[in-house]
Amino acid sequence: MASQGTKRSYEQMETDGERQNATEIRASVGKMIDGIGRFYIQMCTELKLSDYEGRLIQNSLTIERMVLSAFDERRNKYLEEHPSAGKDPKKTGGPIYKRVDRKWMRELVLYDKEEIRRIWRQANNGDDATAGLTHMMIWHSNLNDTTYQRTRALVRTGMDPRMCSLMQGSTLPRRSGAAGAAVKGVGTMVMELIRMIKRGINDRNFWRGENGRKTRSAYERMCNILKGKFQTAAQRAMMDQVRESRNPGNAEIEDLIFLARSALILRGSVAHKSCLPACVYGPAVASGYDFEKEGYSLVGIDPFKLLQNSQVYSLIRPNENPAHKSQLVWMACNSAAFEDLRVLSFIRGTKVSPRGKLSTRGVQIASNENMDAMESSTLELRSRYWAIRTRSGGNTNQQRASAGQISVQPAFSVQRNLPFDKPTIMAAFTGNTEGRTSDMRAEIIRMMEGAKPEEMSFQGRGVFELSDERAANPIVPSFDMSNEGSYFFGDNAEEYDN
């Protein structure tokens, strides 16, 4: 993207840094990872977990959730003011799984939030270390993106479920800051804005008074975040219109849905970061690795190297396929839920299948599930090659597409044709070009129609051997075009429920 120079890199967003050079960025990201790792080690000690239990991804998720809940100030305040039966607002906890007599047992633990905050700050040299908290939120978000298709949420806001490739980060909490905003897809931002506008339509006082002023500035800020994701002048001009509207209503909703559809071809720039579970960072720190000293990046080879040398386990339900569970977590670790499966298959070195073909449910185990038949197995999170994460949407291309997802959002900077089903997408653009945004709409449609099938995206960008740390010898991959490109292809993934 041309304006790259004016933006802070995501590592800076990730670490609240002012302008830093590459070495400083690597050190501050490393410091953040160190903090998460030290916190995780301490929690495993508190909970008396064995090494194996500490490497269980379900335990990692519970521990991450506990610290996120302990620092969720708004919710904590709300819980104190609106006490609900049987919930102690000062405590947080969740299921911890232990191996007892050759069987997995679930144990519900409860801790004072104050105590968890103390352990977290102690692991982070006394700081609140917001960057580390956001990092864990993005890992949870990436896992949700890989596990669930947001059909219901899309339909509720009037969008087409086939636009799911635009929904990265749709389950990120509001408090995820600049680093969170960077990884949100165009569809996620559109959905947040539509929800806001709908509230304004239904509630006369939404934009009024002292609160209304705050609401208005939040609305304009979200519009600017979305505008910054678009790469064409016409899309940005249309966002200006939406932002400046005196009284946002149905016309703005129409414009936003139009823009979301246009992003299936004229893709937005959305950041991709490899955020790993805390149970990967903990053992690495415990083994003596100093992330701050060595430096770390979320968008280069580092996460690949770390996963190459990590042992992570997962509980497996009786009829689940461990290899499929591994694929789910591998995609989440690489922030690749909406990437082209052919690119992923090449990088991973084994075939990556669409969601609907995987015999696996989510990673988390519900409290009512029976533990008797639970097994555990090693997650295979290694890769054959590594590639640089991208934040450009890439230019655009036609490809055989599917009944489910009709476009992709690249996660890796790797040369390819970008699949999208042009006739299906263009069919949504018939007729409606009147109104105050008509010239911009016409211009956007013209650009979409001009998108050429034979153009290559990320020209000359390749993948790298894991021994090639400096990215000196790019390998331009070859793809098996007979395979499906979309992950949520004609899909039956479970729906995400809060």
Rank of each mutant, 00 (worst) to 15 (best):
W139H: 10
F39Q: 03
I197E: 12
A332F: 04
E210V: 08
R106E: 10
T157A: 03
A123R: 02
M331E: 10
E14D: 02
K214N: 08
R55T: 02
S69I: 06
T92W: 11
G158P: 02
Y52P: 00
L315T: 13
F488A: 11
G86M: 04
N368P: 00
Q168F: 10
G249H: 10
P89Q: 00
G249N: 09
E210C: 13
M32K: 04
V363S: 06
A278C: 06
E14G: 08
A366G: 00
K229D: 11
T157G: 14
E469H: 02
P453G: 08
E454K: 15
I33G: 15
I36K: 07
Y52G: 02
A428I: 12
A233D: 02
Y52R: 03
G93Y: 12
R361H: 10
I41G: 00
A323Y: 03
I347A: 02
Q58R: 13
R236D: 15
T424G: 00
S3H: 01
I425K: 14
A178S: 06
D112R: 04
R99Y: 01
T151G: 04
G200M: 13
R99N: 14
Q308F: 09
M105K: 15
N368H: 13
N395M: 07
R216L: 01
S376W: 02
D439C: 07
L108T: 08
L154Y: 04
K273R: 02
E443S: 12
T437E: 15
V109K: 01
T15E: 00
K227N: 15
M137A: 03
G158R: 03
S310V: 00
A271I: 07
S376H: 05
T433S: 02
F258C: 14
S141L: 03
Y219S: 14
N21E: 09
D290E: 06
T437F: 02
R74C: 08
S28L: 07
E46S: 01
P453Q: 04
P322K: 04
A373V: 03
N395I: 09
I36G: 13
C333D: 08
G212M: 06
Q122E: 02
R208H: 10
C333A: 15
I365L: 13
L344D: 03
G490M: 11
M238N: 13
E46A: 00
Q459V: 01
I116M: 14
F71A: 03
G126Y: 08
T360P: 15
N334I: 01
G126R: 05
L344G: 07
K91A: 02
M440E: 12
H272M: 11
F346A: 01
L358M: 09
E484G: 09
A237E: 04
I57Q: 08
H324I: 10
G54R: 15
L466I: 07
E495V: 12
L143N: 14
Q459P: 02
G86D: 06
E115K: 08
R199E: 10
E495K: 05
I25V: 09
Q241C: 08
D468Q: 10
G212A: 12
Y10T: 00
R246W: 13
L166E: 07
N368E: 15
S176A: 13
V363G: 03
V463C: 04
E210Y: 12
C279W: 13
L328I: 09
D16F: 08
I301F: 13
L166C: 07
A234N: 12
L379N: 12
A22C: 06
N319S: 08
G393N: 10
I265R: 04
K77G: 00
S377D: 06
M66K: 02
A179D: 13
G35F: 07
F479M: 10
E254H: 12
T350A: 02
P83G: 00
L276N: 12
V299I: 10
A427R: 01
A493V: 15
S262C: 03
A323L: 00
Q308H: 05
R121A: 00
A218V: 07
S176F: 12
M13L: 03
S245R: 06
E380K: 07
M191Q: 08
Y385H: 03
P277N: 07
Q399H: 06
P83L: 08
I316D: 08
L108S: 04
I444G: 00
E114M: 04
R204Q: 13
A387Q: 08
S165M: 15
G17T: 05
N247L: 06
D145A: 14
T147G: 08
A123L: 01
R384I: 14
E46R: 03
S359H: 02
S176W: 11
Q398D: 04
M222G: 12
I445E: 05
D240L: 08
R243W: 12
P410M: 05
D160W: 09
Q149M: 11
A178I: 09
M481P: 02
N397R: 00
S287M: 10
G169M: 06
I253D: 08
E81H: 00
I197A: 02
E469V: 05
Q12Y: 01
K7E: 08
S9R: 03
K452I: 02
K357V: 12
N370G: 05
T146P: 15
A284M: 02
T62D: 11
K229S: 11
F412D: 12
Q399Y: 00
P322N: 14
N321G: 13
S402A: 05
G282F: 12
D421K: 15
T215H: 12
K87D: 12
P453K: 02
T23H: 00
R208I: 02
N224M: 07
A85K: 00
T130K: 14
N334C: 05
N205H: 12
R416Q: 13
Q459M: 02
I347N: 13
N368Y: 15
C164G: 06
